[in-house]
């Protein structure tokens, strides 16, 4: 059986993605093989809740150009073909901007003098470990000042356990490249939002992403009870059903602020997350039929 890949995304930051991802993983691991991948490589935090014992790590690298100045004739072809402006030509010299390079290799492919070799440039680190309850945990961390998150996310995806049963991707906030890289190959996307104009505004952006990728999804309303009815009215006309509501509750906030998993410090949520899993599978079966 191929695993079901569930991405947890939100649009707006701070709506509870990691709370949902870590709770779902903790509940499902009692009956399934679960892998959780923290794809928020600019600010990973799922490990603070799951406390895995890390037993593997590896640098995340991209290959960037190095100019062999003896061979280079300064023809400028590499500058011309670089879509990302990671190369500039000053007189007879080619300058490389490693932080703009996407590692695509186009420059070395086009260089007529074979004067470009590709050298590794570390942009971050990936690590892996098991939690005490058996979740196979993976995370990536972008080096400070490195701007590109997507290569690490792609490399993390290369470590998906295809023999697993449930793979959970904890997405970064927003709706930009890093989020698209996280959700594009998911089977299902859980959209965690809050019933405020901010939550709704950014949820609409996420729905725009899902329409483009054609990925089905459902909504979790967190901090239910605050804000207004706009979110629920909006969702009525969409193919994204409300799968769960979590109330605005200071006990939840306190427990999370202490670094605990929701389903550990309020065990009644264990059955709620089991029900959530059932609703995901039902909805997924319905839309993929």
């Amino acid at each position: 059986m191929t695993p079901i890949k569930i991405a947890v995304a939100s649009g707006k930051g701070g709506t509870g993605k990691t709370m949902v991802a870590t709770s779902l993983a903790s509940v499902l691991v009692s009956e399934h093989r679960v892998q959780l991948i923290d794809c928020d490589v600019e600010a990973p935090n799922a490990h603070l809740f799951l406390k895995p014992s890390i037993n593997w790590s590896s640098p995340a690298v991209i290959m960037i150009p190095e100019i062999n100045e003896e061979r280079c004739t300064a023809c400028g072809k590499c500058v011309e073909v670089c879509e990302f402006h990671a190369l500039a030509q000053i007189g007879t010299r080619i300058l490389v901007f490693p932080q703009l390079c996407h590692g695509c290799g186009t420059c070395s492919l086009y260089c007529p003098e074979d004067a470009i070799s590709e050298i590794p440039h570390q942009i971050g680190e990936m690590s892996r470990g098991l939690t005490t309850n058996g979740v196979d945990f993976l995370m990536g961390e972008l080096t400070i000042s490195e701007p590109m998150a997507t290569p690490i996310i792609r490399q993390l995806k290369g470590l998906v356990n295809e023999k697993g049963e449930i793979i959970i991707f904890d997405s970064p906030p927003g709706a930009s490249c890093a989020v698209v890289a996280t959700v594009h190959d998911a089977d299902y996307v859980l959209l965690v939002t809050e019933p405020t104009p901010f939550g709704l505004h950014d949820l609409k952006q996420m729905i725009g992403v899902l329409k483009a990728t054609g990925t089905p999804g459902g909504v979790i309303i967190n901090r239910d009870g605050i804000g207004n009815q706009q979110l629920e009215s909006f969702l009525e006309g969409t193919p994204y059903p409300i799968l769960m509501k979590i109330p605005y509750d200071s006990e939840i906030a306190l427990g999370l602020a202490s670094g605990n998993v929701l389903t550990d410090f309020i065990p009644q949520y264990q059955s709620e997350f089991q029900s959530l899993h059932r609703r995901i599978l039902e909805h997924y079966a319905k839309v993929s039929a």
Binding site: V79, F84, H85, A86, A88, Q89, I90, F97, L100
Partner: peptide, 18 residues
């Protein structure tokens, strides 16, 4: 020419001035 580039606008604009 760099105004609408997705990224690297500073380098592209510099190249234009160079």
């Amino acid at each position: 020419p760099a105004v609408s580039e997705a990224g690297g606008a500073g380098v592209a604009a510099s190249q234009f001035l160079i």
